[in-house]
Amino acid sequence: MQTSVQVNNWPVWATEPVEIKPPDPAWLMKGAEEVKQLRETLYPFGVRDIEHMGSTSIPNLPAKPIIDMMAKIKSYNDLEEIIERLKANDWSYVPYELDGHEWRRFFVKVKNDRRDCHLHLMLEDEAHWGQQIKFRNKLREQPYLAEQYAELKRKLAEENREDREAYTEAKTDFIKRILEAQ
Score class of each variant (00 low, 15 high):
V108Q: 00
R177V: 08
R140W: 12
K21Y: 14
R161E: 13
N60K: 08
D99A: 04
R140D: 13
Y76K: 01
P143C: 09
S57A: 15
H120A: 06
H120F: 11
G31S: 06
V18I: 13
L121H: 02
K87M: 07
H118M: 09
H128Y: 14
D163T: 03
K72N: 08
E97C: 01
G46K: 05
A170G: 04
E169M: 12
Y43D: 15
I82S: 05
S57R: 05
E124S: 05
M53R: 05
E124G: 06
W91L: 01
A32T: 11
L86Y: 06
Y76N: 06
L139F: 12
K171V: 08
A170E: 08
N137F: 08
S92V: 04
P22G: 11
I82M: 13
E126Q: 10
A146C: 12
T56V: 07
L28I: 15
A181M: 11
T3K: 00
S75T: 12
E16L: 03
L42Q: 05
P11I: 01
K153V: 08
N160G: 07
K64A: 05
D49G: 06
G31E: 03
E180D: 13
N89S: 11
K111N: 13
M53I: 15
E81S: 00
R39P: 01
R39N: 14
E97H: 02
K176W: 08
E162T: 13
L38T: 10
S92R: 11
W103N: 14
F106C: 07
L98V: 04
E165K: 08
E51C: 05
L152F: 07
D163R: 03
I66D: 07
D78Y: 02
A170S: 15
W27T: 05
E80P: 04
V12A: 06
L98N: 13
D116N: 13
L86E: 02
K111H: 15
V108F: 00
D163L: 04
A127D: 15
W13D: 00
T172S: 13
E147L: 14
S57E: 01
I82W: 01
E16N: 04
R154D: 09
K153T: 05
V5I: 10
Q182S: 13
L42V: 01
P62V: 04
L38M: 11
R136F: 05
M70I: 04
I178D: 07
G100Q: 00
P17L: 11
R39V: 06
Y149S: 03
E162S: 12
Y96F: 07
